[in-house]
Design a protein around this nucleic acid. Sequence first.
RNA 1: GCCCGGGUGGUGGAAUGGUAGACACGCAGGACUUAAAAUCCUGUGACCGUUGAGGUCGUGUGGGUUCAAGUCCCAUCCCGGGUACCA
Length: 1037
Amino acid sequence: MEYRPSDIEPKWRNWWKENQTYKVDNQPSKPKYYILDMFPYPSGAGLHVGHPLGYIASDILARYKRLRGFNVLHPMGYDSFGLPAEQYAIQTGIHPEVATEQNIARYREQLDNIGFSFDWSREVRTSDPAFYKWTQWIFMQLFNHYYDLDADKALPVSGLVAHFSKNGNAGVRAVCDEDTPVFSAAEWNDMDERAQQLLLLKYRLTYPGEAYVNWCPALGSVLSNDEVKDGVSERGGHLVERKLMNQWNMRITAYADRLLEGLNDLDWSDSIKEQQRNWINRSVGASVRFEVEGHEGTLIEVFTTRVDTIYGVTFMVLAPEHELVQQLTIDTQRTDIESYTKWAAARSEVDRMSETKKVTGAFTGAYAINPFNNERITIWIADYVLAGYGTGAVMGVPSGDQRDWNFATQFNLPIVPILDSQKDIEHNADATKEGRYINSGIINGMTYAEAIPALIQWLEERGLGKGKTQYKLRNAVFSRQRYWGEPVPAYWKDGVPYLIDEQDLPLVLPPVDKYLPTETGEPPLGRAEGWNYKGYEYELSTMPGWAGSSWYFYRYMDPHNDREFCSKTAADYWQQVDFYLGGSEHAVGHLLYSRFWNHFLYDLGLVPHREFAKRLVNQGMIQGRSNFVFRARERFFEEYLMIKVLNPFFAEMGPMPIIKADFEEEHLYDFAFQTNNLVIEVTSSKQSDKIERVYRTAQSDGKRLLVLYTEELIDHINNPEVTAEKIRNALASQEDYTISKEKPRCEQLFVSLNLLHKYHPDSFTKLHVDVNIVVDDVLQIDKTRGKQQFEKTNFKLDASGKYLCSWEVEKMSKSKYNVVNPDDMVQEYGADCFRMFEMFLGPITDAKPWNTQGISGVSGFLRKFWGLFFNAAGQFSVSDEAPNKDELKILHTCIKKVTDDVERISMNTCVSHFMIATNDLRRMNSAKRAVLEPIVVMLAPFGPHIAEELWRLLGHSNTVCDASWPILNEEYLKTDTYVFPIQINGKLRATIELPTDVNAADAEAAALGLEQVQKWLEGKAPKKVVFVPGRMINIVL
RNA sequence: GCCCGGGUGGUGGAAUGGUAGACACGCAGGACUUAAAAUCCUGUGACCGUUGAGGUCGUGUGGGUUCAAGUCCCAUCCCGGGUACCA
């Protein structure tokens, strides 16, 4: 019987569905294993081949764990709020919910096609009110809690209020805003409700505050960083500026230390933990306040990790957005400062940080006073200082910091050495901490270790600063001026936010007429009619994409609970995620925010662990391999005409007076002949104005004009003789105006890659082409028909009649037309083959471009494996004979390797091991149940359909999912002899077969006795012989 | 720029500091076939040499540690991810 995946795969998928094979119940009697994939955003492009990479790996692990006796939770759902659906809604008017619903249906269909063991009864969607009710509920808990430093956990704000009314905020050690005043109980009790509420916001774990956003005045809305390219909006190219806006924030910095410490116990890759550490970036230093000359009481605070360099400060730099810039700038500098600020506002943070070669800045005209030596230093603004980072001001120490050095050099500011060990500071900054201080007042002669405490003590005694620990981690902006997200369960009264009643949850997203900001620039929710809470206006921003994904892993444990986000029973059983798999691009975004929420939920006693995911593996991205085609621009046609058609004419008729080799527009005519006064104009037939203009010029010059439409050139592009004939006719004719009368068929021309070198690079526009109509970089011309991109198109093909495309590796995305749909692969090769091929591509953690060459190897393997079970007549035929030693060795080698490799998530080598076992068994013509059945079980996680079919053919009535993983017996792997490699000076020169357990002396003697070894020894004795038991022999000469 | 990865034959990749290139793809030759497809067998890092010998080089590049380095250390180049509102 032939292996036909299209027959067996749908059959078993149905059977699994009907028998609820993958339904999971809480079974306290069984050990549990929770394996989770980062859930997908259901995009309109559908699932692409990159998504399943992780899902297949986790599915293999889930099925493997099940075979090893675990009760495995392996759920799937959708992160279904997000920007793309909203963009689509703006363009089409279709409600994002409708589009999202369709996208999910499509994802589900595609996922079902691959044979995953997901328990779909536990599916979650973040955009489902039954789900986001709990996202909103958690938000409310955050609002109602503050971080208490003594308890080192989140505590209810109600306790804080009680404390304030008795003692004021003295004695409260809590994380709060920098500018929180100190107040007494009396002062607190005297405050009105509004003042009290405003004060409490300084403590709450979520609070409204100001943050910079990408504001696009032309679109009247805030843009995501993704939507901004080179300082303008991606759509429309409108100007974008950075603007302060009132936004909800999450006080994640309260958890900075715990998020750092928690990393130590996590079984996550070192690289990801390192990224998180760097992102949080705890730095110990000092804050120093500088007075501003002539501005009594105005202080500029800076944070520095190198307070020891304070005497080397020769200037100060503020972020262009710094609140004091306006006030400090003197009139004569105002124009400079304003134009610089405007320029800087248009630049993104990444641009601002990346630019290190070009130093820019502007002088405010103001001076600050260094508190240590009372020196006047100039105050500048420069875009390398970011407003949202630290205090938005830095002290410039050019001798010790390269960026400061560059700045000082550019603007001719002094560079003062401060350590006797600093070298070469005329050419570079030297950030050393070695040596002793010079030019440094109270710390002269001290070392780094002595100077720091001395300086901090000095500052603290005078109230001019203090030792301080700072984090690079910033509080997270939580508002989005968008429609398609969770509404914030808060309303505004008198400029103060209040939570709605818990019983009014969920606060459901209201309908709006358009998904755009209001005329007054408010978020789309401002359009919702009658949308208010007991007469008060709701918060109009919605939550960001990461809200729902920060806690969804608990919902899978108890997905239908309408009283709690997850019951205690469920959480107690499933505990935490044992294995989490997802893209490395989430290293600091999702994975840090979700850890933060989890720590908070843990503080409230709602979840059993501080960390939600015990083990994490990051899969590499499957990149797209984009193809490009080249559309000819007008310049091409002029060049083409010259090269292919005109040159023979010119050779015959002599050179022309007015033609030059370049094809600039300002030339009067494109080409001209002396013969018969003929001039030629090449242009699109659409440019009738231009044709008329040239015609008039030609008339007044007394020239005869031939107009060649680019479109007619396109029509005959592969046959230049047609055009040559036209020119010949025009040269012979006496008409003063020749123009084609027939309507050209084509409007655009695409030129094959291998012809481009003949033309100027500017002659073409490079465009993405759908990779699904390209095979081996050759465009399938027949498949271009009916495609909008190729309407009225002709192709200039290469000598072999092909159209060759160029290619590049890029992110796989709809806009790049490089999305490959797994359905197509499944259709052609079957789901098992697709699954195994994705695994066979390489290590799960590596990024790689999608490329299907090689899939036939996996397909062939499955057929060969299948063939092991059938005799020459095509009948199922498996023997019950006892296996021999060689067969047992094949089997147990396979058990060992596959078991080891699944445990370390090395799925690609597992596939190889199956191939090796299959090839070996085929060579032996072996078909024994005792060997084949265990391999079927091991194959089941990888190719569940084929394994299920063979399992049943072997006579079982239950599903292969409920079989047991085979047990390794090392005895079968042992060998009596081993072929030892013999190295001379580390290079392989010979081999020798010896007993596996040979001792050093015997091995050495045997090796030295070999003729090949003697040859190298040249009669001398070796200096040394290294013997690694059971492995190798190295002879050192 | 900064942080984190990665770089091995024509290609995807394999390799607890111990025989570099497992397993596949591709390619070449052969078998079967009227033929093609499919299938099967053999070969396949480069170079020199050749009798089935043997040798030199070889894991981005340049150094180093070691009896032994793809693997460890230092420097450097290139590619990918993240860079706080894509998810």
